[in-house]
């Protein structure tokens, strides 16, 4: 039983990312989209926080949102497109969008 958590708000604006990391289990996934991809900014506090996710929890980011912001992703991030997003939604037991 695993959850795909979807974040789309900037991690610098509120506590969604921090709370999401608290709720995540080792089998969960975290997908960054929209302004949430700013969490990939090297040297930032959210970037460091991402590494505190449970070992084994997968990290995804929407490639177009990453590219649009001139960010880059490390090896531990799978860059995905929308068809892959849909596929992931089916692979996990549930999707939790942090609205």
């Amino acid at each position: 039983m695993a959850t795909l958590h979807v974040l789309s708000h900037s991690p610098f604006a509120d506590s969604r990312l921090d709370s999401c990391l608290v709720l995540m289990s080792v089998r969960d996934g975290l997908l960054l989209s929209g302004d949430a991809v700013y969490a990939l900014q090297p040297g930032s506090a959210p970037h460091a926080a991402l590494r505190t996710r449970p070992a084994g929890a997968r990290l995804y980011a929407l490639e177009e949102d990453v590219r649009a912001r001139a960010l880059s992703a490390g090896d531990d991030v799978e860059l995905i497109d929308y068809p892959r997003f849909v596929e992931l939604a089916g692979e996990f037991d549930r999707v939790n969008s942090w609205l």
Partner: peptide, 18 residues
């Protein structure tokens, strides 16, 4: 507590966060 929060989500078919 934090561990119970993680376990809570796994008990439900759907989760909505607002």
């Amino acid at each position: 507590d934090d561990a119970e929060l993680t376990a809570l989500l796994d008990r439900f078919d759907e989760v909505i966060t607002l």
